[in-house]
Simulated assay, not measured.
Amino acid sequence: MNRLVAVVGPTATGKSDLGVALAEELDGEVVNADAMQLYRGMDVGTAKLTLRERRGVPHHLLDVLDVTDTAAVAAYQREARDVVERLLAAGRTPVLVGGSGLYVQAVVDDLEFPGTDPALRAELEAELAEHGPAALHTRLAAVDPAAAEVVLPSNGRRIVRALEVVALTGKPFPARLPTSGAPRYDAVLLGIDRPTAELDLRVARRVARMFAAGLVEETRELLARGLREGRTASRALGYQQVVAALDGGGDLAAAAADTVAATRRFVRRQRSWFRRDRRIHWLDGSGPDATAAALRHVGS
Results as ranks from 00 to 15, higher is better:
102 L>M: 13
93 T>W: 05
91 G>C: 11
58 P>D: 07
111 L>W: 04
59 H>D: 01
72 A>W: 14
64 V>Y: 03
54 R>Y: 11
63 D>S: 12
99 G>L: 09
35 A>K: 11
105 Q>R: 11
115 G>K: 05
55 R>G: 04
36 M>P: 00
41 G>T: 02
105 Q>Y: 10
88 L>H: 07
131 H>T: 13
61 L>I: 06
30 V>F: 10
62 L>H: 05
61 L>S: 07
25 E>Q: 15
50 T>M: 06
81 R>T: 11
121 R>D: 14
31 V>Y: 12
99 G>H: 04
30 V>W: 02
23 A>K: 11
83 V>G: 04
55 R>S: 06
32 N>P: 01
123 E>T: 14
95 V>F: 07
31 V>E: 12
57 V>G: 08
49 L>K: 09
128 L>V: 09
94 P>D: 04
82 D>T: 14
50 T>A: 10
107 V>P: 08
69 D>V: 13
121 R>A: 15
49 L>N: 10
24 E>A: 10
102 L>H: 13
32 N>F: 12
87 L>W: 06
27 D>H: 14
65 L>Q: 07
70 T>R: 15
58 P>G: 08
122 A>F: 00
111 L>A: 01
116 T>R: 15
27 D>K: 01
90 A>C: 02
118 P>S: 04
34 D>Q: 02
55 R>I: 05
45 G>A: 10
87 L>C: 07
36 M>I: 00
63 D>Y: 00
40 R>K: 14
57 V>L: 06
69 D>N: 13
119 A>F: 06
121 R>M: 11
45 G>K: 01
115 G>A: 09
28 G>C: 13
48 K>Y: 01
35 A>L: 12
60 H>Q: 03
125 E>D: 13
33 A>R: 00
40 R>A: 13
83 V>L: 04
123 E>H: 12
84 V>A: 03
45 G>I: 01
77 Q>F: 00
61 L>H: 02
52 R>K: 11
59 H>S: 11
67 V>W: 06
33 A>Q: 09
76 Y>P: 03
69 D>H: 15
37 Q>H: 00
65 L>R: 10
98 G>N: 07
68 T>G: 13
34 D>M: 00
133 P>M: 14
120 L>E: 12
57 V>Q: 06
23 A>E: 07
102 L>F: 08
87 L>Q: 12
50 T>C: 08
32 N>K: 08
100 S>C: 05
64 V>W: 06
43 D>Q: 08
44 V>H: 00
63 D>F: 00
108 V>H: 04
83 V>R: 11
72 A>Q: 15
30 V>H: 07
21 A>G: 09
74 A>I: 06
51 L>C: 00
24 E>R: 15
30 V>M: 13
57 V>E: 05
35 A>R: 12
69 D>S: 12
39 Y>T: 03
130 E>H: 09
112 E>A: 13
25 E>K: 15
70 T>S: 14
122 A>W: 01
113 F>P: 03
95 V>S: 08
118 P>Q: 05
75 A>Q: 15
37 Q>C: 03
25 E>I: 00
36 M>Q: 09
80 A>E: 06
